[in-house]
Amino acid sequence: MSQDQHDPAEESFSNSHVLDPAATQDSQETINAEMQDIHDAASGETQPRVNFPPYRSSLYRHPTKSMHHADPETIELWSPAFGNRDVHTLESDLTIQGQGEPLGERIVVRGKILDGDGRPVRNQLVEIWQANASGRYVHKRDQHPAPLDPNFTGVGRTITGDDGSYEFTTIKPAPYPWKNHHNAWRPAHIHFSLFGTDFTQRMITQMYFPGDPLFSLDPIYQSITDQKARDRLVATYDHNVSTHEWNTGYYWDIVLSGSNRTWMEGDTDAH
């Protein structure tokens, strides 16, 4: 089979930019200028734009019509219930899934899940997934030539405590290249999947590490046009979460959009 008859199912790092119609050879400077223009015209936004052309994959994947305002009804005022039946305690430690220790910097990420009124989100499912210490995901479509780690899958789950707290032990992920534009690199991040008390609060986001030099260059992070809002995705280094001769520590609180339920007296108690 010649090069130009390449089977599209056989994706490799060298041809995947062809298979991904959104991948471009644009320069970082081009992307930066586009991001700057959008930021200059925006102010005070709290969520990412779904229409953010510097993130090329978003071009044909965002709604163009107005979001339709709706009042949540019945089922939407509740969330599915998860508990210890669903998740084993050990699933929050991503460093013990293999036969041996994974490579990289062992970290603990700890924080609370709250709603807009400061109520802790209790007994809810938190899922994370991430690249390893070399910037590689365990995934058939990640062909970045960095080593896989046989002792690290990069996947964890936990159930929040009564005070909305969660904690994961993992390895600090590395940045990795992607095909949005020429020489594009994602800042190191951990993906978080979250449930609230209402299904309308369901969200997926990414946690970043403080001081990452790639922040200003990344169209996914910069799709949030306001610096204060972007800062909400960045964990804080916390020496109280670090432990002696074992791990460094990060702290990250997550706030879900407000619950629309009618809460009873006592439900708002701080624990």
Binding site: Q47, V138, K140, D142, I204, T205, I224
Partner: peptide, 24 residues
């Protein structure tokens, strides 16, 4: 009220891994 944490894309790597029972 506390301002909600922004969402971000799920990205490409949420869903498949050869040779592992239960990941992502």
């Amino acid at each position: 009220r506390l301002v909600p944490t922004p969402g971000q894309t799920i990205g490409p790597f949420f869903g498949y891994a050869d040779g592992y029972d239960q990941v992502h």
